[in-house]
Simulated scan of single mutants.
Amino acid sequence: MADIHIEEFYRDSAIALVQLYSVFPRRINLFVEDIAGPDEPDEFGLHSPRHMACFGALLWLEEEGLLRYIDTIRQEALDQAVLTRNAFIRLSTPAPYDLVAALDLPEPGVPAPDDDSLPRSVRQDRSTWVHVLRQSIKGGHSPTLNRAMQAAFFAPAGN
Rank of each mutant, 00 (worst) to 15 (best):
L133W: 03
P143H: 04
V130L: 01
E107N: 12
S142W: 10
Q150W: 08
Y97P: 08
L145K: 01
L105P: 09
A148E: 00
I137N: 02
Y97I: 03
G139T: 09
P111Y: 02
V130T: 13
D98M: 09
L103D: 05
P108Y: 11
V110L: 05
R126Q: 12
P119E: 14
K138E: 14
A148P: 05
L99S: 12
L105I: 09
V122D: 13
V100L: 02
D116V: 13
M149Y: 05
S121Q: 13
S127L: 04
D115Y: 03
V110A: 08
P113L: 01
W129D: 02
V122Q: 14
Q124C: 06
T128Y: 03
Q135W: 00
Q135Y: 00
H141P: 00
G140K: 00
E107H: 13
L145P: 07
R123E: 05
L103P: 06
P96I: 06
D114L: 07
R123N: 14
H141V: 13
A148T: 05
G109E: 09
A151V: 01
R134H: 06
L133V: 07
R126H: 12
Q150K: 11
D115A: 02
D104I: 09
G109I: 08
S117C: 06
H131L: 01
R120G: 01
V100R: 00
L99N: 07
A102G: 10
P96C: 09
S127A: 14
G140Y: 03
V110H: 08
R120Q: 14
Q124E: 15
I137M: 02
D98C: 01
R120I: 12
L145A: 08
N146W: 02
H141D: 12
G140F: 04
N146M: 06
G140M: 04
V132M: 01
W129Q: 01
Q135L: 15
V132R: 05
D125N: 11
D104S: 14
V122L: 15
A112W: 04
D115T: 08
P94K: 11
V132W: 02
A102P: 05
P106V: 10
Q124T: 13
R126V: 08
D104M: 12
R147C: 01
P94L: 07
G140V: 06
E107Q: 14
S117I: 05
S136N: 02
A95K: 02
D116G: 11
G140N: 07
G139L: 06
Q135G: 03
S142I: 06
P111N: 01
R126C: 07
R120D: 14
H141Y: 15
P119S: 10
L99V: 15
H131P: 02
D98L: 12
A101Y: 11
L103I: 08
P108G: 15
G109F: 03
D115K: 00
P108C: 05
P108E: 15
D114H: 07
L133S: 00
P94H: 11
D114M: 08
A148C: 00
R120A: 15
A112E: 10
E107V: 11
H131F: 12
A101I: 03
L105M: 09
R123A: 14
Y97D: 01
A151P: 00
A151N: 09
P96K: 13
L105T: 09
L133E: 01
H141G: 01
D114N: 10
P96G: 13
D98P: 04
L145R: 05
V100N: 05
R147A: 14
A102F: 00
S127G: 15
Q135N: 07
S142P: 13
